[in-house]
């Protein structure tokens, strides 16, 4: 049931139009950070206000919404955002990746490949991939404009010199269609390959930083690396203890005080689906 005190999906129509214009611009220039007049939302900055505004601007009554945080549908922030739209937009919700028309996510890309017609909305804390190399917005904007990305590789060089490998494990920077360097939001680098050539529309919203950027379907996205130190999408070398999946991203769960732990899929829908199909991991019978 929609809350009558607010318009559909909370934001007023003018604001939604403003956000849609920013989204269209972002889709037209993939990877470019489009400034937008981010609004205060009833949840705090840093808790997904950018993603929520993008979702609000994209939702139509026929949509079926899925919200995940850390890959899971049942984490508190995911529950809170899903409830917010159930209340303010009255849209149907789902936990099934395949059934969703719009998925808002924090920190993960679902394991199941997305299809044409789906929209994936990322919550972004720091949209600027160069931010921690150069704190000034005025300077980083110039660097993007002039395509001066040498500094980004200096960071990767330093990683290899110090650690023997590129020591960036999440929010791993990418280059979009050979032009803009982009922060993929803090997804694990394991998810980076899914950014490229994805059939779905990928939208990124940063509320506090007032930026929107996007990847249209089938955009080429390359993770930055060196020719002799190529990017690898690594993950812990375990299989899921519940569903036995060997190729999904895993959460480590501490099970007792004695150092006991288990590894389970971070994508809860993916894991449940596999178990329904009869797959079983090391502890699949007990959990």
């Amino acid at each position: 049931m929609t809350d009558q005190a607010y318009t559909f999906a909370y934001l007023d129509e003018q604001t939604k139009r403003m956000i849609r214009r920013a989204l269209l611009k972002a889709l037209a220039v993939p990877g470019y950070q489009v400034p937008f007049a981010s609004r205060e939302m009833p949840m705090p900055y840093g808790w997904g206000t950018g993603g929520v505004q993008v979702t609000a601007a994209c939702l139509v009554p026929e949509d079926r919404l899925k919200v995940i945080d850390q890959g899971a549908d049942d984490t508190t922030n995911a529950v809170s955002i899903r409830r917010f739209f159930a209340r303010t937009a009255g849209v149907a919700t789902t936990e099934a990746t395949a059934e969703a028309t719009l998925i808002q996510t924090r920190h993960r890309i679902p394991e199941q490949p997305l299809r044409e017609g789906q929209i994936l909305v990322y919550q972004v804390p720091i949209p600027e991939p160069l931010r921690f190399l150069e704190p000034r917005e005025t300077e980083t904007r110039k660097m993007h404009e002039l395509e001066e990305y040498g500094l980004m590789h200096v960071k990767l060089y330093e990683d290899i010199a110090r650690h023997g490998t590129i020591a960036t494990s999440y929010a791993y920077p990418v280059k979009v269609e050979g032009r803009y360097v982009m922060d993929p939001s803090p997804i694990p680098k394991f998810d980076n390959p899914k950014l490229s050539g994805n059939a779905a529309i990928q939208l990124f919203g940063a509320g506090r930083e007032q930026r929107i950027y996007a990847l249209p379907p089938y955009t080429a996205v390359v993770s930055l690396d060196f020719d002799d130190h190529p990017f690898t999408a690594s993950k812990p070398g375990h299989a899921c203890d519940l569903c036995g999946a060997a190729h999904s991203y895993l959460d480590e769960v501490i099970t007792d005080d004695a150092g006991g732990r288990m590894f389970v899929c971070s994508d809860t829908d993916f894991c449940a689906g596999r178990r329904r199909e009869g797959h079983q991991g090391r502890l699949g019978g007990q959990a």
């Binding site: 001066e148 990305y149 040498g150 500094l151 590789h153 200096v154 060089y157 330093e158 290899i160 010199a161 110090r162 060196f226 020719d227 002799d228 130190h229």
Partner: peptide
């Protein structure tokens, strides 16, 4: 950043992508 990165920065800025 290290001495090596200091010297390498201009090379990377003009497109060098081979760490070795």
């Amino acid at each position: 950043v290290s001495a090596g990165a200091n010297v390498g920065e201009r090379l990377m800025a003009i497109g060098a992508r081979h760490y070795g």
